[in-house]
Amino acid sequence: MKIAFAGKGGSGKTTLSALFTRYLAAAGAEVVAVDADINQNLGAALGLAPDDLARIPPLGSHLSEIKEILRGSNPRIASADAMIKTTPPGRGSHLLDMTPANPIHRRFGHPAAGATLMVTGPFSTDDLGVACYHSKVGAAEMYLNHLVDGPGEYAVVDLTAGADSFASGLFTRFDVTFLVAEPTLRGVGVYRQYADYARDHDVEIRVIGNKVQDEGDVEFLREHVGSALSACFGHSSFVRAMEKGRHPDLAELEDDNAKTLAWMRDSVDTAPKDWARFTRQSAEFHARNARAWANTTTGTDLEAQIDPEFVMGPEALEAQRA
């Protein structure tokens, strides 16, 4: 399953992304965690030291290499330069599985808390004033577009704060989006914005209340987000320790919060997996980007990259292996 963690800055989404990643990995699941936030803190939250983090090649700095891997022998894509972040896979594209043999994982992944961590990378000095972060996040979108995840396999993505992921089709790439909201007006405001943008795109949003201290906080969240409120993390010394850079053993997590993590996994595992929808949305957003700017920029009809006979999913991956 592909899982996003979204929310406003400071809501605790990175901490909960790391905690959920650790929980899944400790249960023996195959987990890839992707830090797609402009503030690159997921690796530290998973316990990596600065020297380890510095050795991870950032996806956003190697877009040409990633495109070359993913385009494979797809005859609709003339070269890596012809790919944009929304270019969908088709027959001949290099589809990815969740194994260590995955060339993207081998090249850009790093072990972290029992999972494989990849990072989109921070702004560099050369980026300041001349580039936006969407180009780096585009590497994560291309990865997700080509990833076939199976039962018991999880890709956990810590998105950039707010609603920046709506600048492309990235927000549709997930089976479940956990929106982390504090019991404040600003906390629930991001949910309203996210829900408004996602309403017409079959995006599954589940609100996780965080930093909840009492029943009044729960009622506040329920009043503002209604039935989208799925679970809450109560006041947690464990989570506070994580936010201070410590990494307690999972056995020390409070019982109620451990139950919330278990519910979150059950919720993800029972979410519908709809590869036909995934494929359709990929094509729709690519066509939209092609018409809006990419055809003019590249001087090419990029809608021709869409393979109408292709459906992403396990059958396509098996055909590639064969």
Rank of each mutant, 00 (worst) to 15 (best):
D269I: 01
D149F: 15
A140S: 14
A294T: 04
A258D: 09
R173I: 06
Y154L: 12
P151R: 04
P58V: 02
F171I: 01
R71H: 06
N257S: 11
T160K: 15
M83I: 01
G12A: 15
A54N: 00
D307N: 00
E182K: 06
F238D: 01
R265N: 05
G12T: 12
H62D: 08
L42P: 09
N295S: 00
P57G: 02
A113H: 04
A18P: 13
H201C: 14
T270Y: 08
L117M: 10
F278Y: 12
S79T: 09
R321T: 07
A294S: 02
L70P: 01
P50Q: 04
E182S: 00
G121K: 09
V34T: 08
A113N: 03
D35W: 07
G43E: 09
T14A: 12
W263R: 12
R277L: 11
V156P: 10
L70N: 07
A44R: 15
L95Y: 01
T298E: 05
D200F: 07
T279D: 05
S64V: 10
T125M: 14
K2P: 10
T177D: 03
A290I: 00
A292E: 00
P308S: 00
R22G: 11
A292G: 05
S93R: 04
E252A: 13
L95V: 00
E303W: 01
A78H: 12
K211T: 08
D52G: 06
V268R: 03
A258M: 07
L170H: 09
E153S: 09
F20V: 13
T120P: 07
T116H: 12
A140E: 10
P103A: 01
A101P: 07
D51W: 08
D97M: 06
S227W: 12
D274P: 08
T15N: 12
A262C: 03
T298A: 03
K259Q: 11
E68D: 11
V239N: 00
G114A: 06
A115E: 05
E254R: 02
S11C: 09
Q40R: 15
T21D: 13
D307W: 00
A251K: 09
R321I: 06
V311S: 08
D217I: 05
S124G: 14
G47A: 06
Y194F: 13
S135L: 13
Y133R: 05
P58E: 04
A161Q: 07
V203N: 07
I208V: 02
D37G: 13
A167S: 12
N145P: 13
Q213V: 04
P100D: 08
G92T: 04
F20I: 11
V268G: 01
E309D: 06
T15S: 14
A80Q: 02
T300L: 10
P88T: 00
S135Q: 14
R222K: 11
L229Q: 03
T125L: 15
E252C: 00
V32F: 14
K136M: 11
V212I: 05
R240T: 03
L95Q: 02
I104C: 07
L144V: 07
G226K: 00
M312T: 07
S168P: 03
H62C: 04
R222D: 11
D149G: 15
R71M: 05
P272N: 01
S11I: 10
S267M: 10
L250N: 04
L159T: 10
